[in-house]
């Protein structure tokens, strides 16, 4: 449906890619670890290698959790928009098909948060 309006109702989206100074937004969530209340939003260059995102960006965001140091990244399961997905760690975010405002999640088998509570 379209918005009911008296005149033409067209406005630019507030979050168009051009407004992020060359970065694109990527949302990342860690399944079964709700101590981080919500997935994170990162402004990252599309040319950043996926590996750099995992090794340099994620620790600053998720590193507080005692499970984080125990992650075996080779076994982590990934999801893009909720569907199983396999990233290539050596390719860039863009070459992995990640665009502006894409959402990915990872699940780390055997790690289920504080006292198994998914916290």
């Amino acid at each position: 449906m379209a918005v009911a309006a008296l005149r033409k109702y067209e406005f630019e989206p507030a979050d168009a890619p051009a407004k992020f100074h060359g970065a694109q937004l990527l949302y990342v969530g860690w399944e079964d670890h709700l101590m981080f209340c919500a997935p994170f939003a990162f402004p990252l260059p599309p040319t950043m290698p996926f590996r750099a995102m995992v090794e340099q960006v994620l620790p600053g965001a998720f590193g507080y959790h005692p499970d984080f140091a125990r992650i075996d990244w080779a076994k982590a399961e990934w999801f893009k928009s909720g569907r199983p997905w396999t990233p290539d760690f050596d390719k860039s975010l863009a070459d992995n098909g990640l665009g502006h405002k894409d959402v990915i999640r990872f699940r780390t088998q055997g790690l289920t948060g504080i006292a198994g509570s998914c916290s």
Partner: peptide, 26 residues
């Protein structure tokens, strides 16, 4: 679901490691 999280944070805070999340959420 919630007590383990709060108790963990309380223990951490008692050790001087009060959790402040510095990454912005979706």
């Amino acid at each position: 679901y919630y007590r383990p999280r709060l108790e963990y944070w309380r223990e951490q805070a008692a050790q001087g490691k009060r959790f402040y999340n510095k990454t912005l959420p979706m």
